[in-house]
């Protein structure tokens, strides 16, 4: 068993770069989509809200695997060229989690007390200044704990890229290791679990750091309660569940 360990680990580690690229790329795209989408969900123009709603509900309402297959197998027929599997994956991860992130952003912005808007109006700040300088920095503190959950979810979702031949960690295990080291299945899976646990731990540590910085900027301590609430709130829960 242990003599195979030295052969198994390198194969798994070869899968690490695609997993990390998909995670980081997906997170970047998620942020780029969820912040504007979340703010537009609060637009005073109805057609804007409806349009963004369609994006949000469309991606939250269908399966991520369907989205992946659709973008990888159907979209090329429509646009006339094949996407690189890894980038198709990043696209789906970002679009999907961006839809969930939009709700997080919207909820966080709405949670900033009305009085803060009024304080900013009384100082004659413009609507854009109000949002950028006063409201959003406070909303950021609220959105980080649920965003952490969302990013962990995204990290886990990178495994589905195995289904479109991306040689990431899960596919390395399933397609290379299992067929060749059949006696070491438990070891292989133990290592795969370990890889994801470590990545999740790194991600969480980074998000905690961000939470600490953002909280300090609004003169608060990072809220453990918010993190627990985010953990229990679950997927697709639109508003933070009051009382739970």
């Amino acid at each position: 068993m242990s003599d195979n360990l030295s052969r198994i680990v390198p194969v798994l580690l070869q899968g690490l770069p695609p997993t990390v690229i998909a995670t980081v790329g997906g997170i970047v795209l998620t942020i780029l989509l969820s912040v504007p989408a979340g703010l537009l969900l609060l637009s005073s123009r109805r057609w804007v809200r409806v349009l963004v709603r369609i994006y949000v509900e469309g991606f939250r309402g269908t399966s991520e695997v369907v989205q992946l297959f659709w973008i990888y197998f159907v979209l090329p027929v429509l646009i006339g060229f094949q996407l690189v599997p890894l980038w198709a994956g990043v696209l789906v991860l970002g679009l999907n989690h961006g839809a969930y992130g939009a709700e997080i952003v919207r909820g966080a912005v709405q949670s900033v007390p009305r009085a803060q808007y009024e304080g900013a109006i009384a100082l004659s700040l413009s609507p854009a200044q109000r949002m950028r300088r006063v409201i959003f920095p406070q909303a950021l503190v609220e959105m980080l704990p649920p965003m952490n959950n969302l990013f962990i979810q995204l990290l886990k979702s990178t495994a589905i890229l195995a289904l479109i031949t991306v040689p990431e960690v899960t596919r390395q295990a399933r397609d290379v290791l299992i067929p060749n080291y059949g006696d070491d299945t438990i070891l292989i899976f133990g290592l795969v679990f370990l890889v994801y646990l470590v990545l999740a731990a790194i991600l969480t540590a980074l998000m905690r750091l961000a939470e600490r910085i953002a909280s300090r900027r609004v003169g608060r301590r990072p809220s453990r309660a918010a993190r627990v609430a985010a953990r229990a709130a679950g997927p697709g829960v639109s508003d933070r569940m009051a009382g739970i």
């Binding site: 886990k156 990178t158 589905i160 899960t170 899976f189 999740a200």
Partner: peptide, 14 residues
């Protein structure tokens, strides 16, 4: 903290 897909494979192969 780990992918559902990996857990599915785990049960299926282990």
């Amino acid at each position: 903290s780990t992918p559902l897909l990996v857990q599915i494979f785990f049960l299926f192969f282990v």
